[in-house]
């Protein structure tokens, strides 16, 4: 009987055709082009086997370093966003005056464009006349002033902090939605059992929040591996090439007209995302608790 109420399978066709045409086909073509010498200067495209991939790992341009930078960004940027966002969400989920105002304030940077954020923070973090160093000077703490985006030691922490400033509100909002879906009965039961705050957090809140954590980790993972905007606007891969990531390198290759090499980098990114992402998502979805 239920079968009769289901829509026929053919209804899926328009969406499937569009998906194949606009997503699967370009992706497969992209992988194919990574095995060719496709470039802007010549109308002919030749199959070159693994030449482009060989270039990626043997060129004096440190492509493997860019891959490591991408992985570093993915891990650290997620940690510095997810952990504080979780505590912020817990804090702003409690009964307090003006909590919606606080929520809005924390969420606000998420709606700003990366370009705006980049311009603002390049100015704020300037060593001589940036707002941050000026502040340290004004409060007689000149030893805290640094060359944030120009100093090899501080450039990555600076990027992580700016990225966290922009992204924390978004992650917090997902956690808030997750927190509000936890039935209060669990907390009542825990209270009756005499559980303290940390026990409730460990035994009730976190297990019930796994779907929200999964969403944040998956979003964070794909965002981190595909990162481009924040790096491009803050450092453009500098100082030197210290903060180059896969997508800034892809952008540079495409801009240079060496499409084959650019698509090889994209293919590499796809493989890295699959290797890291699929097992992680499987692991996390297995841990989800049904309410």
């Amino acid at each position: 009987m239920i079968r009769n109420k289901l829509y026929p399978l053919s209804f899926i066709l328009p969406a499937l055709v569009l998906y194949l045409l606009l997503f699967i086909m370009p992706s497969v073509l992209g992988i194919w082009f990574s095995f060719t010498d496709w470039n802007r200067y010549s109308p002919d495209i030749h199959f070159v086997g693994f030449d482009n991939f060989r270039t990626l790992f043997t060129s004096s341009k440190d492509y493997s370093g860019y891959i490591l930078n991408t992985l570093l960004f993915t891990v650290v940027s997620n940690v510095v966003k997810i952990v504080p966002a979780l505590f912020l969400a817990l804090f702003l989920n409690g009964a307090m005056k003006g909590r919606n105002v606080y929520r809005a304030i924390f969420f606000l940077p998420a709606v700003l464009s990366f370009l705006v954020v980049g311009l603002i923070f390049r100015s704020v973090l300037h060593p001589s006349h940036g707002l941050l160093n000026q502040f340290f000077m004004a409060v007689q703490l000149p030893f805290l002033a640094g060359k944030w985006l120009a100093d090899p030691t501080w450039v990555w922490p600076s990027i992580f902090l700016v990225d966290a400033w922009k992204g924390i509100g978004y992650v917090m909002t997902i956690f808030l939605a997750g927190l509000q879906s936890i039935p209060l009965d669990y907390y009542d039961a825990a209270n009756i059992d005499g559980a303290g705050y940390w026990q409730k957090l460990r035994a009730v809140t976190l297990p019930m929040l796994v779907p929200a954590i999964t969403v944040n980790v998956v979003f964070g993972l794909t965002y981190g591996l595909k990162v481009f905007d924040i790096i491009y606007v803050l450092t453009n891969g500098g100082p030197g090439r210290m903060t180059e990531v896969i997508n800034t390198a892809v952008f540079n290759e495409f801009a240079s007209g060496t499409y084959g090499l650019g698509t090889a980098l994209s293919t590499l990114l796809f493989v890295v995302m699959a290797i890291v992402g699929i097992p992680l998502i499987r692991y996390m979805t297995a841990k989800e608790v049904e309410v």
């Binding site: 090899p152 891969g237 500098g238 100082p239 030197g240 090439r241 210290m242 540079n252 240079s256």
Partner: peptide, 17 residues
């Protein structure tokens, strides 16, 4: 054609990379 790339490399040289 590679002016900006040279700029990045010189910048890497300045920081000892």
């Amino acid at each position: 054609d590679q002016w900006m790339d040279i700029g990045k490399d010189l910048s890497a040289m300045f920081i000892g990379k």
